[in-house]
Amino acid sequence: MNSKQVHKYVQRYLEATQCAILEKSPAHFKVKLSPVADRELTNRPFYWSFVDRTGSEPETMTYLFVTDQEKYEDNVNAPALAPAPATSAVDAALNRSFGFVNNNLANGVRTHREDLYFGSRKLEQLFGAAKNSGSYVNLFQEPERRSNTPFQSTPYTQWLGVNMRVEFACDRKREEIHSYGVSLATGLVVENFYDRLKNLKLTPRLPANVHVTRNGLSFAKALNLVETSLERKLKGYDYSWAEDATARLEEELARIRHYYDPMVQQAEEEVKSAIEEQFNQRQTEIRWQYEPRVTASAINCGIFHLEGIE
């Protein structure tokens, strides 16, 4: 993610969570968080449990999110030079009347600055926040055009959609992301289902003049179809990495066997079990480290009602 992408990402998050953007440039946002976003991003569990218990009006925090550090600093420093005399004249006048005036007081609440870049902890937290409230959806496609006659109803199909992260791991790891959709009407399985959804307008409410076709198969059946499709796809992959990992695993096991076997044999009775235990522990560690495995878990999923019957 480059800084432009981060910027766009942050903007969409802030808008989706109804945060009040007080100020923005291509390099930053100054934002008063909404309660939802504040709970996710400010690490104040005690404050929020206080608000929840007492029912008092929450005071959310204001942040300065900088998405492009370099550009932001340039912007801040450059224009500040010109109006500086004016403000200092005002300050001087105020100082004469009231003594020292802290400029920050005029700006209201203290703002926390966070630099958001790919890898920064705050952005990581924002990713987590998106995941926490973007995991399970139930959505309807908005019809392309309003139907001419209010008495004509458009048929919709219910889909089970899921985005899966597939991890190929041994002592090393790589990942793939797969997106599946299963038509609950017909059992049709579609790959790259998410790409198809991206181009549609989706809404949480059932649109007018729409009816959903009766499901032909159960959720459980659909789940099975997803897993079977994934399995079929993955079976065609190259598993030399797993063979290599297994070879390493066997080599490591042989090495420690060579080390421990004579030790166990020669050991006095009282220490024997301790050595064997250590030997077992080392074997477990090596399996843990090298054993090849593929795991699939959902990033998020949902029920999607899409136009037409498929």
Binding site: M1, Q5, Y9, R12, Y13, E15, A16, T17, F118, F127, A130, K131, S133, G134, S135, Y136, V137, N138, L139, N163, R165, I177, Y194, K198, L202, T203, P204, I299, N300, G302
Partner: peptide
């Protein structure tokens, strides 16, 4: 049910990572 935009953001974060 969760929000569609956040659903998309969640997928995009996973793609980036």
């Amino acid at each position: 049910w969760d929000d569609w935009t956040l659903y998309q953001l969640s997928v995009e974060a996973e793609h980036a990572k």
